[in-house]
Design a protein around this nucleic acid. Structure first.
Lengths: 151, 151
DNA sequence: TTAAACTGATACTATATTGATATCAGATAA
DNA sequence: TTATCTGATATCAATATAGTATCAGTTTAA
């Protein structure tokens, strides 16, 4: 059971790159190189994030992408929602009718509680928070800089 | 992001059927009919659960399956582990080397906390607990019995 | 004024996972 | 001795995931 797919993972990293270059446009090519994300794949993710108003873009030379929100307003809950679909227990929940099986409904009740907890936690993890955590880590081990990419 | 796949869902229901017939063997056919689970699919799940010592079987006429553990000792955490793989953040976690990207590691730290919370919660939900919840529900609305299966 | 550096949009492909079906061999009870 | 079961596999379709390719259009700067 993978919690984060590549899409979400890459999206987070891309947003961290944008957050680090606050105020200026960063090209997909630059993000791709910096974060090791397949270029065309990344482009798709960026387009998706434009559609959700997380980033804005500028075409042409010197163009690229920029955050269109405060990093603290971009939470993992939303990103997971965009790239992996809303966290849900099972399809059963979307049927407007009573579950065919009572057991499932009992289960559902239990799990919806967990669902809420998980969503709350994911919501608390924002790009802003990750950025600060990242800075803290880098401050502790300044020698490694941002290289040290193991092959 | 689906929390429970059909496999886990079906497995839970099958175990509830077995828990309800404590002490006697229940055939896959009976479970299949009772819970609306595709017969051969269910058989596979039951075999898998035998391998994990959750149920035992008896071949031949009047044969079937039986719980080989106390219902309170079968938790969702284990079932999810069996049918969906252990809850994990991303593949990155299994690499014995440092993550290529620092951000991912920061993220990982955050998410491992959630992972723990989720696992603890899932562990608390056992077949025994669901069975009791189910009984409580049925006691409240005895009129509906165990029919009322919407087509 | 045009070439290079960009994004927008979309179509496509490969692989893995999920959900499900089919078949045959062997055990067991009536 | 046959109908009712499980054991063990093999196969398959649908969907999701991950990644690639292409072409059109925009913008800057030489």
């Amino acid at each position: 059971m993978k919690v984060l797919t590549k899409k979400t993972d890459y999206a987070i990293r891309a947003l961290l790159s944008l957050a680090a270059s606050k105020g200026s446009y960063v090209s997909a090519k630059a993000i791709s190189a910096e974060q090791g994300i397949p270029y065309q794949f990344l482009r798709g993710l960026l387009q998706e994030m434009i559609r959700h108003n997380l980033v804005s873009s500028k075409e042409g030379v010197q163009g690229g992408f920029m955050l269109s929100k405060n990093p603290d307003e971009i939470g993992l809950k939303q990103l997971i929602g965009i790239f992996q679909g809303k966290v849900e227990v099972s399809e059963c929940m979307f049927r407007k009718q009573l579950c065919a099986n009572r057991a499932k409904c009992v289960l559902r009740h239990e799990i919806m509680r967990i669902e809420q907890v998980v969503n709350n936690e994911f919501d608390k993890i924002t790009i802003g928070k990750l950025q600060r955590d990242l800075d803290a880590v880098n401050a502790l081990r300044p020698a490694s800089g941002n290289v040290e990419e193991p092959k």
